[in-house]
Simulated assay, not measured.
Amino acid sequence: MTSVQDPDLDWILQIEECKHVGGSRIKVQGPSKVVALKVSPSVVCLLSHTGKDKLFACSGTIVECGGKESDGTFVGIILTSASLLRCPSGAASLAPDIKVDVLLPDGKLLQGEVFAYDFHYNLSVIKIRSDTPFPTPSLRNLDESIPVTLQPALNSTSPRHSDSFKIRPGDKVKALGRHYHSHSLVIASGSFTIGLCEFDCQELMMSTCKMGSQIHIGGPLINCAGEVIGINFYHERYTPFLPINIAYRCLEHLKIQRSVNRPWLGMELTNFYAVNLADMEKIVQKFPHISEGVVVEKVVKGSPAEVAGILPCDVIVSCGGHSVRCSSEFFGITWDKTRESVPVVVMRASCGNRQMLTIDVEDTSEHRYNRWPIPSTYLDMFWRSAEK
């Protein structure tokens, strides 16, 4: 991993103007451009066609490159959005007669091979070949846990998950994309934030990066060290992103078995530190030792969570025999336990009791697949601007 000497200083140094897609002017900080350039050689643009009709354009990241094949070529693995492949009707199915063009940073055009995809997590894997190796970026798992410590810890232990990037609300991030017409790198600046994401996907996190174009969709979200920490999607007010923890796990499953686990529990969760003050006070009054965990916000009627006896405001502190500090940890545990029964430990503030329950982790049926809306007017605007 390449570290930054002083992350705080790195993000506030000199500002200069640069040209942005469409001729508008944006502010890009000098050191931030250096960080973006660490990733830019692996950021590509993808265009899909069905027959003679243009279907979708987005960005992607070359996350892997294998050794030289028997034919002397190198194979690159691109991770991007499955919106690239989705049927024009919006159904969770592959568009007919689909072709994918891949534009490299130097403007070179390659034919992409649709290797695998998943419409629930909105991810697709595209293969490309070249006579030379493809550059790949550093990937870093996210750890968004923040202990709410009311008193000093009695014991000092080494931090867990040292291979993860510890992220906090307000930490600076960049959403990157590549424009298919000019081949230029496009950057949207913002910070990691907590709040209500309007998408179905429970695993999504949020940044305040505001996209000026759909071209950021499928592109990487990077931290201040130039490491890829997520895959971007589109919302007009913010940028939802799938943490690389989940995205790369999907990639590994797609490469091996062309499908992924899609755990469904039927509840909405938030991190303990993100609940409102009134609810947090009720919890710590009953359980003053709690500093981390995930809080249940909503339980779907008839869901595995309801059948297990989980209630809104329960704090899940353990799952499958592992302590739970944050939602990404919980999702990771349940991912591995899809179609299995898992013990969970919850702290119930309403009665002040510790509950030991068992929940069946169901596989998500197709009618419950996550929705990934992109306004059609926005797509039309993009194609018009790209054709100028």
Rank of each mutant, 00 (worst) to 15 (best):
Y180D: 09
R178Y: 06
E144P: 02
S328I: 13
I62K: 06
E329L: 09
S130W: 05
G309S: 05
D8S: 13
T377A: 10
G107N: 06
L150N: 06
A153D: 07
W11I: 13
V346E: 05
K210C: 15
S24K: 05
D106R: 07
I217R: 08
S318D: 12
S3P: 01
D380Q: 13
Q151H: 12
L94Y: 09
R86T: 07
I98V: 15
A349I: 04
H367N: 14
V315N: 01
S184K: 15
D200P: 03
S93T: 13
K172T: 15
V346I: 11
K33D: 00
G23V: 03
V324N: 00
K174S: 05
E69M: 07
K52I: 14
D131W: 11
R258Y: 07
L265H: 00
F382C: 10
F165N: 12
I256H: 05
P375W: 03
G177P: 06
P105V: 11
L84K: 02
E113V: 15
S164P: 01
S328Y: 00
T73P: 02
H289R: 08
T2C: 07
P105D: 08
L84N: 01
R25N: 09
A225C: 13
S162M: 15
S59C: 03
E203L: 10
W383K: 13
K210G: 15
D97A: 08
W264K: 07
F119G: 10
D360N: 10
K68I: 14
S156L: 12
F233R: 04
V114T: 08
T377I: 03
V324P: 00
E387K: 04
E227G: 02
G22F: 04
G22M: 02
R339Q: 11
N261M: 14
R160N: 10
S341D: 13
E281N: 13
T136K: 04
S341Y: 11
P288Y: 05
K54N: 11
V63H: 01
E144V: 10
A153S: 11
I194Q: 14
S328M: 09
W335K: 02
Y369A: 01
P31G: 01
S130T: 08
T149H: 00
C313E: 12
R354F: 04
L55A: 04
G72T: 02
F233G: 09
N261L: 13
Y248W: 12
F272Q: 05
P147W: 06
G212W: 00
C224Y: 05
L204Y: 05
L185P: 11
K337L: 09
S341F: 13
L150E: 05
G266L: 03
S124C: 15
G190M: 09
M356I: 15
E387F: 03
G22H: 01
C197Y: 00
M206H: 03
K298C: 11
M347L: 15
P220K: 04
Q29D: 10
T149W: 00
